[in-house]
């Protein structure tokens, strides 16, 4: 019974691949490379050291901005969710900045801070932090007042209510914010690097110049794999760290 949805999953993927192959053969590789061509390009790309070097540099630059976004966004989100005055001050900015896409601010940021680590870190931070803030704010606001009352009636002071109720209640949402934030951070760094033609973004630009779309698709597939494995890993960590939540969502 358990393998059944997996099998369906696999069948679904297979079906899409077959349709893609058929469409690709009709349109030609300049418009839509077939999965077979992309697979070949993928092997070729992965055996090229440039991709690994570019990917590695991009990822660690992204991680700095991403970790900063979590480090600042999470406490700020909790403060906004629990303290109305903080929310009143920050919320208007958060709702404005969250709609700003990386592509819109990269040119300005390049002029303001050049093309180094500061640029990539800032872009990733600015694009990611508001998603984290908004997600955590909502989660912090919706912490059950009844559970807070329970803790209060057992004589838990402010700190203990934070430690024993708010933090554990936020835990699953922290992990969700971290996952969503990661995807946004990755998109932001790719956008920024495509503008400055650096690292992985530069490779994407150059692949776009080739008439065949296969190398470009191969690079995109690599990005997808990075994103999927990172979020899978984070989900696994989340389940490990909050078994109560994992077991509750699994039972549903």
């Amino acid at each position: 019974m358990k393998s059944h949805p997996r099998l369906l999953n696999l069948l679904g993927i297979l079906l899409v691949l077959v349709l893609w192959q058929m469409a690709g053969q009709r349109l030609g590789d300049a418009l839509l490379a077939t999965p077979v061509q992309v697979g070949r390009a993928l092997v070729e790309t992965l055996s090229d050291g440039l991709v690994w070097a570019g990917l590695w540099r991009m990822m660690w630059q992204m991680m700095i901005g991403y970790l900063l976004a979590l480090g600042i966004g999470v406490p700020l989100g909790i403060a906004m969710g629990r303290i109305p005055s903080v929310d009143a001050v920050v919320k208007p900015w958060a709702s404005m900045f969250i709609v700003v896409s990386a592509a819109a601010i990269v040119p300005l940021f390049i002029i303001l801070m050049g093309r180094g680590l500061l640029l990539s870190t800032s872009i990733v931070f600015v694009v990611t932090v508001w998603y984290v803030v908004i997600a955590i704010t909502e989660a912090a606001r919706s912490v059950s007042p009844r559970l807070l009352n329970v803790a209060h009636s057992f004589a838990a002071d402010d700190f203990k209510r934070f430690r024993y109720v708010i933090l554990p209640a936020l835990h699953p949402y922290l992990m969700i914010a971290a996952r969503v934030g990661f995807v946004h951070a990755l998109r932001a760094i790719v956008t920024a690097e495509m503008f400055i033609g650096a690292d992985y973004g530069g490779l994407l630009n150059n692949a776009g110049l080739d008439l065949s779309t296969a190398p470009l698709f191969a690079l995109i597939v690599i990005l997808m794999m990075v994103s999927i494995s990172a979020t899978k890993l984070m989900r696994w960590i989340a389940d490990y760290a909050a078994p109560w939540y994992a077991s509750r969502t699994r039972d549903r």
Partner: peptide, 18 residues
């Protein structure tokens, strides 16, 4: 050597001193 995707950005950065 810094590849630049948007053509006008090249001039902008020179003017800005970047």
């Amino acid at each position: 050597v810094r590849p630049t995707q948007k053509i006008p950005q090249i001039v902008q950065e020179v003017i800005a001193g970047g």
